[in-house]
Write a protein that binds this DNA or RNA. Structure first.
Lengths: 133, 133, 133, 133
DNA sequence: GTGGTCTAGACCACT
DNA sequence: GTGGTCTAGACCACG
């Protein structure tokens, strides 16, 4: 499972971790029963404080997406299977609603809003000739 | 000038106020020289803490969009004329970038993201038979 | 709302807080809409670290028993009404099951187990002539 | 000697082992001088980590209930005879106190607590038609 | 080695 | 003032 953080995005680190874990499951990178990286290990890899990882794991356990066993580690739970692509939708829906509300608040038309989004997406588009790292 | 707050949007209240003031100017609802509602009056109308209004006015004054005159109140400044329709774009661009980054973080395609936005816009669409207020 | 901690019980502090909040609701000490003590205030009163209170409040918010508003504080949520005396049952059922399993593991009879419990309860019984503090 | 673990009881595994050994003695299943199963053998049978068995044996040796002889294995010690039925009481007393304290913490009456225990015992009761193994 | 809890203290944004 | 997040480091229990 590869987790990559974007420190300047404003999204809390523990939130980025929980989201990436869900995405990893949807991609098939992890499956129920798999052992999660240990708290210390993940914290080390990401260069962050272990308690931040603990917070992320707490959340995941609250959602029954992982289970933790004393002295053994954390494991992907069966509940993870409830994460359907639908779940991603929920994460995105929130972001989309934010933008929709903002646009409406400013009195812009739907077409204008879609154009704004399209433009930002274009900016993020990787250059075609760049090799994938 | 009519200011409407959306407490559940996640946008800070003081930010909603400053944005709405700018929009009010662009719509022609307010003009340089106009008197702004007093802090207490606006706070009362919106049912929020006066210090929140103060923070919004502070910010507007910092941007030279309003001026305050001791004992008289706050007034729309000439600087407000620097607010071009462009300004709206900047506000929206920010929101759009947020959504674009979030979508990229979750590994969704551009078309999927546009669909999400479109759906949220549809939800906000007023019912056809409702009269616009 | 009066929260009292038992530092030597082995029960995590944050867990004692969440439980006591639920009990406080069941007793009618707090009601939906009420403001909860602030994190710093409660931590000060209990003589514990604020982050421990934060952890307790996190849990309560996860269960939709409280809501938090930036800069305003935490408030008892409507979801608290879902806490029926039933909920206490759940907390107790867990403890009871622990004891039942332990007893069975040791091969004791039901009557013997009830006797054990009764004896311990008797030990905790306050002396009749003691004045309530 | 038959040892059965309940992984979901919350009782530490090493504790379950030491307790079951004591119970085995009280039942007459093992006697001073008997050879204990080897660490690897027991760990294999129970499907647990050998170090966990080592910890259990360490504890039993500390209590002089077993002795280890280099290269030969662990044997039930004479000290085991000090285990009186009383010992069972001590184990249970602890569990009972836990439950009593928890109940008191939640403000329940003694009768309510006894009812909770009775209910949990009933749940564990084997079905009438099932033959005892 | 693993997770579980707690402390102390920091910085930030919002009201 | 409020909550939100993160760091650094400690001690414990379990395997």
């Amino acid at each position: 499972m590869h987790i990559h953080l974007n420190p300047s995005s404003g999204v809390p680190i523990y939130r980025q971790i929980t989201d990436e874990v869900k995405v990893a499951f949807l991609r098939g990178s992890i499956r129920p029963g798999d052992r999660m990286p240990s708290v210390r290990e993940l914290a080390g890899n990401l260069g962050i404080n272990p308690t931040t990882v603990v917070k992320a794991y707490d959340q995941l356990e609250n959602e029954s997406l992982i289970v933790r066993r004393q002295g053994q580690g954390a494991f992907v739970a069966d509940g993870m299977q409830l994460i359907h692509p639908q779940a991603l939708s929920n994460l995105m829906t929130q972001a989309a609603r934010q933008m929709a509300i903002e646009g409406r608040r400013l009195g812009l038309s739907e077409i204008e809003l879609l154009a704004f989004l399209q433009e930002e997406l274009a900016k993020l588009r990787p250059r075609s000739k760049e090799k994938k790292k």
